[in-house]
Nucleic acid binder design. Structure first.
Length: 445
RNA sequence: GGCCACGUGGCGGAGUGGUGACGCAGCGGUCUGCAAAACCGCGUACCCCGGUUCAAUUCCGGGCGUGGCCUCCA
């Protein structure tokens, strides 16, 4: 069994060989905490949680370091914070802190409900401003960056292989550009490392005056701090390939004597909702938080894993119902005394670039113990109680009704027995007469 | 406009240069007072047009469709 991963750098599946099997290192871009995360945001979180678990399975629980940052400095945050601060006796900075703390807390709760393990480190950008400033200084000294009108910009013309991740040349990018270029840029593709902040915008003192970091530098600074100059896997959504990850590479390699930033770049595909792109204007913007109100987290997680991570996927209610049905049956039949493990075909599938649909197919063929072990490796805890519907039900009333129905059945009064069953069904309660003579029930969706 | 990805049966979704994975739904059966659940059985799909090949859903070219990036939206 060899783990193979699709590497965006080469656009091929490659055998995964860690730099240090005693410390396999992975970085995944985390949320910008200004609002509830949507279901599209959940995809990388779940996908890379599965990869984290697989790496732990292969290399040992204590031999994998997983870092997922929290972006808590950002102009969208600043805009929201300004709104919050209005009419209250707090500064924009305080309001920003309040907003990001609150949003990050909800995010962590939601992600935990999706069955995701906490990463080894979840650094916040604002706790790493010093590291960012130091890296920017290095880049300026090395000639990769320049100062212009209070901004510090990365000079892409100094990085000969700029574009190697997204596989486009500078010429192509300039030809396709639709944006107006800021006048202080030497090259249209140059990007901001540091920008000035006014008095009402969060900012930090720096060699270039009071300001705040550009978007990309935080990931370069934090990955270096927690994982070193070169680490094994860098993950995220495919939309981050350009410009975010391309720019991370430029910064990190520029600051680190051209040592590669990450050896395997892994990106998940995009998600649509009910056949349409998800957009606030279309009114189909689905947050994780809202979904968790109606569906067990395990069902969301399973639904996500039914599609290969690089494939585009369509998020539908029909799919969620199907997922619930499958999980419910599995949780009923899974062996209780198992631990995370993987039989032959299952592990082969997972190891082949995280082919979760194939792995799930293997589980359909597995016995009770392999099923439980495989589910646990995928991050499911096969306990029927985890799938209990969020719909409120009166269990006492239901068992009373079941008693009455069974009495009627005993008396061969089937008309009355069926009336009771239909009445419960009308309330969404489906009865099941088990072969051993008992009667159980479940909430029908 | 430039660059890129994807298009498989009613639905979801793997995979492969050559006798139709897997699941959901559906149909038939066992079980049941009848159902439900469970179990057993049932399916000649690969967007269109060319090309390569003994053979293409699988490789190549073109088209159409959907989506992504080029605007700090995963």
């Amino acid at each position: 069994m060899t783990l193979r991963l699709h590497n965006t750098l080469t656009r091929r599946k490659e055998a995964f060989v860690p730099l240090d099997p005693k410390n396999v290192r992975m970085y995944v871009c985390g949320p910008t905490v200004y609002d509830y995360a949507h279901i599209g945001n959940a995809r990388p979180v779940i996908v890379f949680d599965v990869l984290f678990r697989l790496l732990r399975h292969i290399y040992g629980e204590n031999h994998v370091t997983y870092v997922r940052n929290i972006t808590d400095v950002d102009d969208k945050i600043n805009a929201r914070a300004a709104e919050r601060a209005k009419g209250r006796n707090i500064s924009v900075l305080e309001a920003a802190r309040e907003l990001t703390e609150e949003t990050a807390r909800i995010y962590n709760d939601d992600v935990a409900a999706l069955g995701c393990l906490p990463p080894t480190h979840t650094p916040r950008a604002t706790d790493n401003i010093g590291e960012m400033i130091a890296m920017i200084e290095t880049l300026v000294k090395a000639g990769f960056a320049y100062v212009a009108q209070g901004h510090v910009l990365f000079d892409v013309s100094k990085k000969a292989d700029y574009g190697k991740l997204s596989h486009r040349s500078l010429d192509e990018m300039i030809a396709g550009a639709r944006v107006e270029v800021a006048p202080y840029k030497k090259n249209p593709m140059d990007f901001v490392l540091w920008k000035p902040s006014d008095a009402n915008t969060p900012g930090w003192e720096s060699p270039w005056g009071r300001g705040r970091p550009g978007w990309h530098i935080e990931c370069s600074a934090m990955s270096a701090r927690y994982l070193g100059e070169t680490f094994d896997i860098h993950g995220g959504g495919i939309d981050l390939v350009f410009p975010h990850h391309e720019n991370e590479i430029a910064q990190s390699e520029g600051a680190h004597h051209n040592h590669p930033l990450a050896r395997y770049w892994v990106h998940n595909g995009f998600l649509q909702v009910e056949g349409e792109k998800m957009a606030k204007s279309l009114g189909n913007f689905v947050t994780i938080h809202d979904l968790l109100r109606d569906w067990p987290g395990d069902v969301l997680r399973f639904n996500m894993l039914r599609t290969h991570y690089r494939q585009p996927t369509d998020w539908t209610v029909a799919g969620m119902k199907e997922s619930w049905k499958i999980l419910e049956r599995w949780y009923d039949m899974a062996g209780a005394d198992s631990s995370p493990r993987a039989g032959g075909g299952f592990l082969d599938a997972l190891s082949d670039d995280l082919n979760t649909p194939q792995a799930i197919a293997e589980l359909h063929r597995a016995d009770a113990n392999d099923l439980a072990g495989g589910l646990m490796l995928l991050g499911f805890d096969p306990m029927p109680v985890r799938l209990v519907s969020k719909k409120p039900v009166d269990a006492v009333e239901i068992s009373r009704a079941i008693g009455a129905r069974n009495a009627a059945r005993k008396a061969k009064n089937f008309k009355e027995a069926d009336r009771i069953r239909d009445e419960l069904l009308a309330q969404g309660i489906q009865l099941k007469d088990n072969p051993d003579g008992t009667t159980s029930w479940e909430v029908k969706r």
